[in-house]
Every structure is written in C-alpha cells, then in structure tokens.
Nucleic acid binder design. Structure first.
Lengths: 243, 243
DNA sequence: GAGTAGACCTATCAATTGATAGGGCACAAG
DNA sequence: CTTGTGCCCTATCAATTGATAGGTCTACTC
C-alpha cells in the first residue's frame, strides 16, 4: 500500500547514506530523543523496520553521525599540537578546519552536541568531545599566557568558540556550501578576533594559521596526488572501530 | 512502600517550586524529551502521578520554566529600546541583565533554549525567543553602522552572544551564585568586547551600560522602597496568561 | 467530632516507541 | 530454471511513557 516513491528518486544516494542525512536533519531540528525512527523512515521514504536493515538500532545511527562529527576535529586538533606556530595561530587553524569540516559535511551536524545526546551509551563520544574541548582550552590558556589573547577564562572562551562554530552552521544551514573555505576563514577570523589582545594582528595570525593548515594538509596526504582537493571526508565510509 | 523522605527534608520549598527546580536541572542535563515524568518525580521525592496534582501536564512544567526564561529578558530588552545610549551600551546593558537574571534564577535555565524544546506546542515561546533575538540583532546592526562594532553579521553576533551567555551558566552551574552582579558584569564585558571596534572603549561602554541599568531599575520600581534589591523574580508566582 | 479541602498515594490505562519475525520480490550466478 | 542474496515490506511485540481514577491521610474549620 505504501509506495516507496521518494526512494526511487533521481539521486543515486544509497539508502544508508540517506538515512544518515535525514536523521541528522531531524536530530538537528528536534533533538535525538524527540525524533522517532518512524519519522526518519518517512523522511527517507521507507518503512520503519527497514531502518534496522542498515543500522542495528537507533543509537547506531547517532553513533555513526557522532563519529563524523567528533573524530575528524579530534584528529585535526591532535595534528595541530605537533605543528609549530603561536597558540593563537594554531587555535585559528583549528577553528578554520572545524568550520570547514562542518560546512562541507553532507550531514547537518548541528544538534549532535546537545547534552541530551551525549549521555548514557554515548559516554564514549562525550569523553572524546571533552578531550577536544580540553585541547582548545589549552591553546586558549597558552595564548593568554603569551599575551596574544586578553585575559579570559579558558573554559568560557572554549564554549563561545565552539558555540560560535555552531552558529556558522545555524546561519548557513546544514546543506553543503559552495565555497566552504571562504566561509570557514570568515568564521575563524571573527572567532579568533574575539579574544585577540591586538585585533590589528588578525591578518598576521591568519597567515600563520594558513601555513599550519597547509602543512597539515600536506602531511595528511604525503603520497597522494598533491593537486587534488582534500575531500577525503566526503565519502563517509566508516570502518568498524576495533574494540 | 515508597517512603517520601526527601519530601520532608529541611527546606521549606513548596513542592511545586521543587518540581520546577528538579525538572529544570533534568531538562538541562538530558533535554526535555529524554526526561521522563518519573525521573522528575524521583528527584523531587514524590510518586509520578503526584506531579499532575501541581501541573496539568509535562508540557506545563516546561511552559512555566520557559516563561521565567524568556519573559524576563524580553521585558528588559523592550525597556532598553526606550532608553537613551549608544547601541553598544544598550546591548551591553542587555547582556548584563540577561546574565544576571540567569545567574540569580533559582532554576537551571540551561537547556531550555535547545531546539527540541521549542517546537510543537511551544511555538509561542519560540516566537518570543525569535523576537528577542531580532532585538539583539537590531542593536548589533546599529552598533556596526555607527562604527562601534566591527563588521559582523548580526545573526552571527547574536548567536555567539546568546551562546556566550549560556556559557556563563555552563561554567557557573545552575545554582544561584553569591555575587551575580559581579559575574554578570564580567561576562557582559567579555561578550561586548568581542565585537568592539576599539576595545579600549570597553570601560566607557560599561559606564554607559551601567547608567542604563540604573535607569531601568529605577523605572521598574518607581514607588517601591528604593533600597531593596530587585528580587521581584525570586518568587515565581505565575499568573495565568489571559487568552 | 463531623465535615471539608488539599496533597499524596496505589493501581491502571492507552498510546507510542524501538525492535523482531518472517515473507515477497528483484536480480545475479551457476 | 534454480539457488541465493540483498533489500524492503507487513504484522506484531514488549517496554516505556504521559496521564487518569479513586482511595487515604492530614490539617484546619465550625
């Protein structure tokens, strides 16, 4: 009785991919707990039990999204601490990479950082997110100590910076943007400037951050063709995490 | 079988008040949808159906909290537009009043602005919140036009400023703080400075904001004893909203 | 002491929710 | 043609959830 028209539509996206996309949008709009599997299925254009052919449970859907949302920024931050450059430059590089990741991600990652999501069986992601936040706070603290930033509580700065990155998504929507790099630099400039002791040094800071980003990019693709764009995260083909 | 020990504890808070307090904390921790009425009841120390003796429904609990969370800031913002003063000063005054309201509120208002909360039957509050945000954006836009603020998208600034205010709660917890005024001024200084074109004018801006706050305070209590502290919001005795 | 109102309890319901079981259908391999 | 496999469907379940009905206890009033 229930036809599956939306399923056969033009786009060739596999169902699994589309489940993630629709679920992310719904989670962003209504929150994880308030989103039912039936709503997700309806948005995808399949029956509710069909979801469980692709994901073992509702939590597994969120788990896959959290992996995309958290693991990439955590990896870039880890790469950042090994790089040279002043704290403010490294922080700006992280803000840029984070914003670009969010903007170029095919899923709407807004709403995945809500508190209701990261409790219970998602403590693993909560821990990873906390680690990410700690890394940001360390960079802020260093920047304050070196006089690059004004005196600001690292925790406060961290929350406003991560919140500001989310504001970028809010404004530009969840859809992948045509020029994520440009928007991401704009956002990282505004966010970095917030706490810069001498705002006139923002351009110099961005130059340093840009160099860091280039180094990380070169480091991440040492043998790949150096000309292609770094869209390794586009295809979200996740491998099972080894226990 | 289930004794009601926590109920008879020292504090004289009426049950209704305590329901709001515990519910707000749970909503902040887990989100509205993920919080069950049984959890709220357990935190209060009563049986689940007893909640419905004080509130007609779970939504009504959230409704009462949203009223506290949104109506007060909306009223102060409305009072602000009538005041004299530069846009930045008025915005700073609003940021201070908002932060102080949150810090001195007996309920943990964090988590009430999550998206999952403001859909469905809470569209009324969503509209009010949007109106509040629009007012903030207007102030930002004026400040940018007059050169007080750097060039920043009003929408972006609004999200970072409101998010930054929430960060204050995150850091200082939901509990009422001993010196909300001091913390609120600190927060509003950090938030205002973010977009100030000339950060060295922050002190002057705060002086202007402080005068505005004093004027609003005097205006709000024209005949009351002028010496008492403005704790009119402490007692959250809500009257039914006339339809 | 009888009556009454408020606050809380136990028992229970109807709806919703995530998840399972098993069948049908298309399609590729042998 | 047969077999098998992947994908989706219908039918259904068990648990949870918000909410209701009705009883009990306490405190106050007359």
């Amino acid at each position: 009785m229930a036809a599956r028209e939306p399923n056969r539509s033009a786009e060739q996206l596999e169902t699994r991919h589309r489940i993630l996309r629709e679920a992310a949008t719904l989670f962003a709009d209504k929150g994880y707990a308030a989103t039912t599997t039936r709503e997700i299925a309806a948005a995808v254009g399949v029956q509710q039990p069909s979801l469980f052919h692709h994901f073992g449970s509702k939590q597994e859907i969120l788990d896959s999204l959290l992996r995309v949302s958290i693991e990439v920024p955590a990896a870039t931050l880890k790469a950042l601490v090994r790089q040279e450059g002043s704290p403010a430059e490294r922080l700006m590089a992280h803000l840029f990479l984070d914003a670009r990741h969010i903007l170029s991600c095919p899923y709407n990652l807004l709403g995945l950082h809500a508190d209701d999501v990261l409790l219970g069986d998602f403590g693993r992601w909560r821990a990873k997110l906390d680690e990410l936040h700690r890394g940001i706070r360390r960079l802020v603290r260093s920047a304050v100590q070196e006089g690059e930033f004004v005196a600001v509580e690292p925790e406060f700065a961290q929350w406003t910076l991560t919140g500001g990155t989310l504001a970028v998504i809010r404004i530009h929507g969840g859809a992948p943007r045509p020029r994520p790099d440009r928007t991401a630099w704009q956002a990282s400039r505004l966010l970095t400037r917030m706490y810069l002791a001498r705002p006139e040094t923002l351009d110099a800071c961005q130059r340093g951050a840009s160099e860091i980003v280039d180094r990380i990019r070169a480091e991440a693709t040492p043998e790949d063709s150096p000309a292609d764009k770094p869209k390794a995260k586009e295809k979200v083909k996740e491998k099972e995490v080894a226990p």
